[in-house]
Design a binder for these strands. Structure first.
Lengths: 257, 257
DNA sequence: CGCCTGCTTGATACAGCTCAATCCTTGTGG
DNA sequence: CCACAAGGATTGAGCTGTATCAAGCAGGCG
């Protein structure tokens, strides 16, 4: 996946006992310790990173980042899910992505935030000042390396999404989404299809789904119903989808033949 | 623009005479010397970078990067314009971006290219092996810093494009495109509107425009005609547009009131 | 139990697509 | 220098996929 690979050489072979160091134990307990950014860092680096982090817990539906505001912070999600979006003055909304455990927020920014961010569930995250982060790069180049990897991966996802939004039909969008969400869920990026009967958990509402796929909730609902009627999926409840025939979904998603 | 700013401290205050050093003079003459990536580097760094570069000249319409192939190289455009795109098996195409002088190609990739790239005019570019680039990061961290900046900027553009593709009307897409192309042309990113009567040069065909904006050529043509009839733009010829009333275009593009 | 919110389903409207004809620009050859 | 051909752009007419508007449905919570 990562074009620069793991930075194994930077990890200390000798374990450091961090139990008595408060700033480190914060990371030890963290749900995201072995995900994303944090997994790329040695224990020593984590201690340093942790000292610069402000840990926060937010309730559902909290808008903690607003498009147009000065960009002061980066965030790393520890638990829960966040939606990132842009909006037009008349209320039209485009969700540009979802950030779950281990995901990094704030790379898509200039001096101002270009997206807003809102929690979809109770969320725990670590907040870093952008200036502090920059300073850390001097000391810990692995951090910067990893951030470049993350940015490159997000670019790949963006390109996919542009194809989806610009050129795919409603049914193709839904099929594409289900498959990409499955990928994401079994973290990830094996490039393989999910196995038949794989069960997806969607923390998103139909409205979120519509705003992510550039459709209306009605069209989302109809498309899901169509896939159900064709026997490609099952919908036991509103937040779960079972992929009965992933290959058939793939054929629709990629407009094969 | 750049959230990490210029890396002024790394530039040598004392000029080095490079005239007699072949690998350096290649950069001295380059149209992109003071653009993008190359402008972020000191002369010393450029010499090194240049030694790793393979300079190429390609004719119009050359497909030099194909989606799905192993990602071996990065490219830096020196002159001309390149279109980057994804396609579906049935021929539907989504252009994800255009790369002109100073632009870097290849950040949106995993082990495989996820987009194809094709020249729209005669193009000069520098090619770098990805492995070589990675090695250079150790030696010249400014390079990596700059690459992260570039990636972040591309992410910002991607988010804008997702909003455009997912939620804007045909007229709004055209207006948005004209303004963003004006920004790009007067390199760039001042965030200000172009002055009235600003003249745009479009190296792209209507087909390219359609595939970039997620529309058909007919709709592109009709929307441009509509803007012309309303007196917001003038179209002296197929590759030029004059922005008579940028503010009015902005109001359309951003769906203001 | 019944309200409320979010989802589904149905009927209709319309923005943008498709198909088709014409126009314009540019390059070529007589 | 003009006639003509060819490819791209424009314009028109009708169609269609998705949006809009509206009515029912269901599951969760007080």
């Amino acid at each position: 996946m990562s074009s620069f690979g793991k930075i194994a050489s930077l990890r200390h072979p000798v374990a450091i006992n961090l139990a008595d160091r408060p700033s480190a134990s914060a990371c030890e307990d963290c749900g995201a310790r072995h995900l994303g950014l944090c997994d790329a860092l040695s224990d020593e680096e984590l201690v340093f990173l942790s000292s610069a982090a402000h840990r926060m817990t937010l309730p559902t539906g909290r808008l903690f980042l607003e498009e147009g505001d000065a960009a002061q912070f980066f965030y790393n999600v520890n638990s829960g899910t966040v939606r990132l979006f842009k909006a037009l003055p008349d209320g039209r909304r485009q969700i540009t992505g979802f950030a779950g455990p281990g995901h990094f927020i704030g790379l898509a920014a200039t001096d101002m935030n270009v997206v807003s961010a809102e929690t979809m569930e109770p969320v725990q995250l670590c907040r870093f000042s952008r200036a502090g982060m920059r300073a850390m790069f001097e000391e810990y180049p692995a951090l910067e390396r990893k951030l470049l990897d993350v940015a490159m991966h997000e670019l790949v996802l963006s390109q996919q999404q542009m194809l989806l939004l610009g050129r795919k039909t409603a049914l193709e969008r839904i099929a594409s989404f289900l498959l990409s969400w499955a990928q994401r869920q079994e973290n990830c990026n094996t490039g393989k299809l999910p196995r038949p009967n794989a069960k997806l958990t969607l923390p998103l509402s139909r409205t979120d789904l519509a705003d992510y796929l550039g459709l209306t909730i009605e069209t989302v609902s109809r498309s899901l119903s169509a896939l159900k009627k064709e026997g490609l999926i099952e919908i036991p409840n509103i937040h779960e989808v079972v992929l009965l025939r992933p290959q058939a979904l793939e054929n629709i998603a990629e407009a094969a033949n």
